[in-house]
């Protein structure tokens, strides 16, 4: 009996040592995603993870910290290590709109987040189901003008990019009814099931759903390479260029050198042709906003979003 116990003990101790050995700490960077797995932030981070390992021979460990639409993670950023071993996903318009809309309840301020790069954005888009009678955006707009409020558009969440798109359309004379769902998946499901007439989503939806949906218009500056037949809102006469930007932030106390190192690395990945190709095929638009351009970019975005917030009545 005693012999067996001591053998088991020895086995356990040696396996512990083994486990420790296997997982010897490589230099690594922890990438905290403020959302659950499977979304756009996750997919693009996974793609970066692959290239990061190849280019810099370091592991990028992806972890999830979902909650509050990202707020839970952003609240906690500044209590994390600042030596560059941890970066956190940062999303626009979320990090600007949440503190505005929820004020103190958001738990953080936009200036709390030391954002150092944005590496892509997904432009907003209006989509319909493949068998919909609306073949072009003009058809949809005409329907909406004739029957104000009857056009139902599904989207994810309230005060999200999807919602804001419908508000911008309303300002341009197209009055639709926005039906919020919990997450893009549910919004797309409603679209495919024809529970709603159309969907206010991202270009990535068109990529994921393929021939099941028809993207009628996209809110990017130029037409997307993966969807050359889809006009931009600008072409159609609506000044709507918007979408969700995704990038990363460091704790506020991180050094400039750390910021530069990580920003340069991520921009290097952005420059890889294969990376760009995979991203574009998925409906993502690669942008190269590194740490040197970040302040100007953020200032612009804050101005844009604050004016939208004023229209919504969130700021007086």
């Amino acid at each position: 009996m005693i012999k067996l116990k001591s053998i088991i003990k020895k086995l356990i101790v040696s396996s512990v040592i083994l486990v420790m050995g296997i997982a010897s700490a490589n230099a690594q960077v922890n990438n905290i995603i403020p959302f659950g797995p499977g979304g756009e932030s996750d997919v693009t981070a996974r793609l970066q993870q692959k290239y990061y390992k190849e280019m810099f021979n370091e592991d990028m460990v992806i972890q999830y910290k979902p909650g509050g639409g990202g707020a839970v993670a952003w609240q906690s950023l500044n209590s994390e290590k600042n030596d560059g071993s941890l970066i956190m996903g940062a999303n626009l318009p979320h990090i600007i709109m949440q503190p505005i809309a929820n004020k103190a309840k958001a738990g953080y301020k936009t200036s709390d987040l030391n954002v150092f790069t944005f590496f892509h954005y997904t432009p907003d888009a209006i989509l319909v189901e493949a068998s919909s009678p609306h073949k072009t955006f003009k058809d949809l707009a005409a329907f909406a003008k004739k029957n104000p409020g009857k056009l139902t558009l599904s989207g994810s969440g309230t005060y999200s990019a999807n919602h804001l798109l419908t508000i911008q359309l309303e300002k341009a004379g197209i009055k639709a009814t926005y039906v919020p769902f919990k997450g893009t998946g549910a919004a797309v499901q409603a679209l495919l099931g024809k529970q709603v007439e159309g969907s206010a989503g991202y270009s990535t939806v068109a990529s994921k759903q393929g021939t099941q949906v028809r993207m009628l218009a996209v809110a990017s500056e130029k037409r997307l390479p993966a969807f050359p037949d889809v006009p931009t809102f600008k072409e159609l006469g609506y000044n709507i260029v918007s979408g969700a930007y995704r990038g990363y932030a460091l704790p506020k106390s991180a050094s400039l050198a750390t910021k530069k190192k990580l920003s340069d690395r991520l921009m290097k990945i952005n420059a890889d042709k294969n990376f760009v190709k995979t991203m574009e095929a998925g409906g993502y638009v690669v942008v190269n906003i590194g740490h040197d351009q970040i302040d100007k970019f953020m200032a612009e975005q804050i101005k844009i979003n604050e004016s939208i917030a004023k229209t919504l009545g969130l700021i007086k």
Binding site: G36, P37, G38, G39, D42, V43, R46, L47, K50, G185, V188, Q189, L192, K208, Q209, G210, T211, Q212, T278, G282
Partner: peptide, 27 residues
């Protein structure tokens, strides 16, 4: 079939598929 996750683990699996270049849907 639809590219919509049926359960939460499916959302993760979908992400993994996308990176592999698999297009979900009737195709």
């Amino acid at each position: 079939c639809l590219g919509i996750p049926g359960t939460p683990p499916d959302a993760v699996i979908l992400g993994a598929l996308l990176i592999q270049g698999i297009k979900t849907g009737n195709t």
